[in-house]
Structures are given as structure tokens and as C-alpha cells.
Computed example of a mutant assay.
Amino acid sequence: MTQTEIVQELARIAHEVAEVDIEAATSDKSLITDLLVDSLSVVEIYLTAEDTFGVRIPEEDLVDFRTLGDAAEYIRRALAG
């Protein structure tokens, strides 16, 4: 799975969880500062991403995700494992 495909899936998840505009959810956007998702929804998005992609994202790694691209890269590396 490519990073672009992962970002697209994260955008879909963000849309389902927090009604984020899918077109606005690009790899350079932050869920909190750019897309205005509250912190509880951010956690729900990443929990759903764990289930969707079959990866574990430790809480201490979440703080390093500044953009959807950061999260997608983390997931891509985890999938390549």
C-alpha cells in the first residue's frame, strides 16, 4: 500500500469519525490545527486506523504525528514491517 493510498484511507476515516471534508484532508494537513478535529476524535481516528490497517500505534508515537502524511508514513513503515 502506498503512502498516498494510506492518506486517502485516513481521510475517509476522518470523514466518518469527525465529518472532515475528504478533499481537504491531504498529506500536509494536521487533523487538529488545519482540519479542526478535537482531540477525542483524533484518538478515535487513530484507533480506527489501527483496526483498518492492522497495525499498533503506541500512544507515545501519536504525539509525533504533525500531519496526515506523518501518520501515513508511520503506518506504511509498520505495514512493510
Rank of each mutant, 00 (worst) to 15 (best):
A72T: 06
Y74Q: 05
G69V: 06
R56S: 14
R56F: 11
R77C: 12
Y74S: 07
L68V: 00
A71I: 01
L62R: 13
D64V: 00
I57Q: 08
V63G: 09
D61Y: 03
T48V: 12
I57Y: 06
Y74T: 03
E59T: 09
E73V: 08
Y46W: 14
A78E: 14
V43A: 15
L47T: 15
R56I: 12
V42H: 01
P58N: 04
E44C: 04
A72D: 07
I57V: 13
E59S: 11
F53C: 10
E60N: 07
Y46A: 07
E44M: 11
A78H: 08
F65P: 02
V42A: 12
G69T: 01
F53G: 09
L62S: 11
R76K: 13
I45A: 01
E73R: 15
E50T: 05
E60K: 09
V43Y: 12
L47W: 08
E60G: 01
V42L: 06
E73Y: 12
Y46T: 07
T48D: 12
F65R: 00
E60Q: 10
A49V: 05
E59Y: 08
Y74D: 04
L68M: 07
I57W: 06
R77T: 13
L68K: 00
A49F: 10
Y74P: 04
V42S: 06
G69S: 06
I75N: 07
R56T: 14
D70N: 06
F53M: 10
G54H: 07
F53P: 07
T52S: 15
A72C: 04
E60R: 09
T52Q: 15
D70C: 04
P58W: 08
A71V: 00
E59P: 00
R76V: 04
I45W: 02
R66I: 02
T52W: 11
E50I: 07
R76T: 03
D51S: 15
Y46I: 12
A78F: 11
V63Q: 14
T48Q: 14
G54Q: 10
F53V: 05
Y46E: 04
P58C: 06
A49P: 06
D61G: 02
A71M: 02
I57G: 11
A72W: 09
F65D: 03
I75T: 05
T52C: 14
T67Q: 01
V43W: 09
R77F: 09
R76M: 09
